[in-house]
């Protein structure tokens, strides 16, 4: 079967194409090993690109399309983890690391000044 229209063809409107591309780069290909649909040769990735471009063309918002896909495939399909009760450590741990580091360093600097 030939690839769907818009699987490998851009939208005429550069602004919409930019939106579509940005979304495709963060949607995970279902049949590949950890690639986004924006850089996969798989036919199903092509069909998903076509779906995204068609919907953006029709005026749908990228985040609405992402939500529609997550409704079907779960958070797995999006490379952008949501912030919820399962993923909060992802966002807290880096801040924690940095905070801990700053705390250790600043404590030692103060002690040094006194001495």
């Amino acid at each position: 079967m030939p690839a769907a229209k818009y699987a490998d063809e851009q939208l005429a409107d550069p602004g919409k194409e930019k939106q579509a591309k940005a979304l495709m780069e963060t949607i995970r290909c279902l049949v590949c090993q950890g690639q986004s649909i924006a850089d996969s040769n798989a036919e199903m990735a092509g069909d998903m690109r076509a779906l995204i471009r068609t919907r953006i063309e029709a005026g749908e918002k990228p985040e609405a399309i992402r939500a529609w896909l997550i409704e079907r495939y779960g958070d797995w399909v999006s490379f952008k983890p949501p912030l919820d009760e399962l993923t909060w450590p992802l966002y807290v741990v880096p801040v924690l690391f940095l905070g801990l580091g700053i705390w250790i360093v600043s404590g030692r600097l103060k002690r040094r000044r006194k001495g």
Partner: peptide, 10 residues
Amino acid sequence: PNSSVQIALG
């Protein structure tokens, strides 16, 4: 032909 129902089904 373009997997649209397949994708809609998850």
